[in-house]
Design a protein around this nucleic acid. Structure first.
Length: 386
DNA sequence: AAGGAGCGCAACCGCGCGTAC
DNA sequence: AGTACGCGCGGTTGCGCTCCT
């Protein structure tokens, strides 16, 4: 254990790689593959340890690496993923094709941390800093007063007092949620409701022993269900969903990645009854959300339909600017908080306004519908335990 | 113009885990 | 079962560039 034997060997070069070394390594791996890394330097004629070769290949020479600075979309995604995964750089990198863990780690330590602090967010906990700067605090106070100026015990008001980011509004609603669904955001007209439908459906019929009504997302049972092979049955309405964001960068619906611990669960389209959605908005600002709804979407609706009034997507989808996104996220947080109005005040089961899916659900899922109100109340009472 | 500070990035280090023997 | 080894990961370091004074 500990130090590798190769590190004890003398006469091995360290430090920056020369172009000649790069060429040797590149030529060797291109021709033969890397195989056993410890043998690579010898076979490639390099005075390096295998570990150094591996690192150089992974972080620099790999042909599929994306060069250049990170896009706002990528930065946002990193923030979202970090909120869920923490310093699991390799797992975060797995969600960003062409980016390395080292690159992301460096970006985080050099740029994103700073940006979050400037916005009054603790980059480690993703919670508001204890003493936010005055401007942030003022802005958030305005948001609070719009949200519910009369409710002093409104936990959302309280949590938003330091900063009005999405993360604030979700705290302490989702203190230990370790689950992410990457919800695509697009201005692509072919973007259909199925794409929006990136919600994990939870079929209580197939597992009557699992009490949806009493599920507590903070419970160890729930968390262990999510982090292991669940006894619950999560399904994906659309398995092969893939779309693009407004930069036309593909956002893959990763249902086989390590991101979803339940990724090996067999999809079951017939299971969609009560939805438990856990989502992260991509490229539209800081937003981690959880949605609860009834699956009422049967037909495909075009993305343009949403923009034409079926759902109040608004301009939030058209910006890539983090600042704009954040301020918009504040607006949406208020605007769509009505969705939670059917829940008890202390439910704290909030929904991000950034996620079109939740906005869509907000419109479709009207409590005054007899069919849905029952279910809604059921769900409401369920999450009243939180 | 010179020097120091700050920053970004590439590379290294040390550890844990898995596997072969 | 114990040991050695290889791999991968997260944390850290150090170099070089840019900006500021």
């Amino acid at each position: 254990m500990g130090r590798h034997s190769c590190c004890y060997k003398q006469k091995l070069r360290k430090g920056l790689w020369s172009p000649e070394e790069d060429e040797k390594l590149l030529r060797h791996i291109t021709k033969y593959g890397h195989g056993c890394w410890s043998s690579v330097p010898k076979l490639a004629g390099l005075q390096r340890c295998g570990k150094s070769c591996r690192l150089r290949w992974i972080n620099y020479l790999r042909p599929d690496l994306k060069r250049g600075s990170f896009s706002p979309d990528e930065e946002n995604l990193i923030i979202e993923l970090h909120a869920v995964l923490g310093n699991k750089w390799s797992q975060i990198a797995a969600q960003l094709p062409g980016r390395t863990d080292n690159e992301i780690k460096n970006l985080w330590n050099s740029c994103i941390k700073k940006k979050l602090r400037q916005r009054g967010i603790d980059p480690n906990t993703h919670k508001p800093l204890s003493e936010p700067d005055a401007s942030t605090a003022t802005a958030s106070q305005d948001q609070d007063s719009k949200l519910d100026p009369t409710s002093s015990d409104n936990p959302l008001s309280a949590s938003a007092s330091a900063s009005a980011s999405q993360l604030d509004l979700l705290e302490p609603a989702l203190p230990n949620l370790h689950t992410v669904v990457s919800v695509p955001v697009s201005d692509n007209p072919s973007f259909t409701s199925q794409a929006l439908h990136s919600t994990l459906w939870f079929n209580q019929n197939q597992h009557p022993s699992t009490e949806f009504n009493s599920i507590n997302m903070n419970s160890n049972l729930f968390k262990s269900s999510i982090s292991s092979n669940l006894p619950l049955d999560f399904t994906y309405p659309d398995n092969n969903m893939s779309t693009s964001n407004s930069n036309n960068n593909p956002i893959e619906y990763e249902n086989e990645s390590g991101l979803f611990p339940w990724s090996d669960i067999v999809p079951n389209k017939d299971a969609a009854q009560i939805g438990l959605g856990v989502g992260v908005g991509v490229g539209v600002g800081v937003g981690v959300g959880v949605g609860v709804g009834v699956d009422s979407v049967q037909e495909d609706l075009k993305w343009s339909d949403y923009l034409n009034g079926l759902m109040p997507v608004s301009s939030v989808l058209q910006t890539q600017n983090l600042n704009q996104s954040q301020s918009q996220s504040q607006n949406h947080s208020q605007g769509h908080f009505g969705f939670c109005s059917g829940l008890k005040d202390d439910t704290q089961f909030s929904i991000t306004g950034l996620n079109p899916w939740y906005q869509y659900q907000n419109q479709q899922f009207q409590p005054n519908s007899d069919m849905y109100s029952k279910e809604f109340q059921r769900v409401s009472s369920s999450f009243g335990h939180l």
